[in-house]
Amino acid sequence: MSKKQGQQTIVFTSPPLISSWASLVGPKEGQGPWGEDFDQVLDDYLYDEQTWEKAESKMLREAVKQAISKRYYQPSEIELLISGDLLNQIVSANYAARELSIPFLGMYGACSTMAESMLTAAMAVDGGFFSRVVAAVSSHHYTAERQFRTPIEQGVQKSATSQWTATAAGAVLLEAVPGGNPRITSATIGQVIDMGQSDAANMGSAMAPAAVKTIKAHFDDLNRSPDYYDLIVTGDLGKVGMALAQELFIKEGLLPQPNYSDCGVLLYNDRQDVNSGGSGCGSSAAMLCGPLLKKMSEGKINKLLLVATGALMSPTTSFQGETIPSIAHAVALENI
């Protein structure tokens, strides 16, 4: 029997258990509304390393280690690591994997990488190929800023639509074991959508249509109503992208209006000078592996749809005047 349902959605016949998770965040994220819910809040952005790139890689490595040590496993007992980040050649993930000695698949989906890694990991587990798989991602404000934008110390005004790349790493451990919650029950793989937006300082606008399209496909494929989920969160649309997504929900006829929010908006409070909100792989990873999974384990949320969103441009294509292609993948987490 095919596990694919409808056009883009897969339904897991033995839903993999999220048996543990861990999150590490930077100082700014720690000062946000969910500071208490993360496993570790760093004191500074260098994390006792020489460069920000090394710090990001270490955050990712530590998130993976903490997630597996919560279940008293050694890294050698983990069969597969699926991981990615925002940097060129996904170096944070590559260098983290170098230290961990776990068979490794690198992923790049820009800020959608958490959902992409989780759904791939869930397929690997549900498919019976592996029984213990870790999915993990990271992003770091200062490594992303220097790769995608202007030098840190240059005095430029940030647009109100711009977003703050989160300094955060998150990891989840998926296991093929009976009993326990939460589990990954289904996932919808997004298409690359480009609605002609080209402002790299307004990625929420570029990504919102991709998010809504994937959410719509998820409900159509599964014949579900939006109120099936206690909460639908997008990854990093920010305030601007979230407002656009809500308009698009109405336009697409997604009724009743889902209980919807965005990790990039949730991650910071209004006084933190992040303009439209947080972004980066770490935005959805930190919210998921911090407060959201905690609330699921406490039974405060029982059905969660995580829709991580990614803007798939590079500085080179931006200079060449290309528009921003975007993607969103949805992962359904349920207490069953």
């Binding site: 005004q157 647009s159 109100a160 639509t161 609605m195 002609g196 937006q197 307004n202 606008s205 249509p209 601007v240 407002a243 656009l244 308009e247």
Partner: peptide
């Protein structure tokens, strides 16, 4: 969509 974005995005 571009019209919608222009309507919603905050102006400097």
């Amino acid at each position: 969509y571009d019209q919608l974005v222009k309507k919603i995005e905050p102006k400097p």
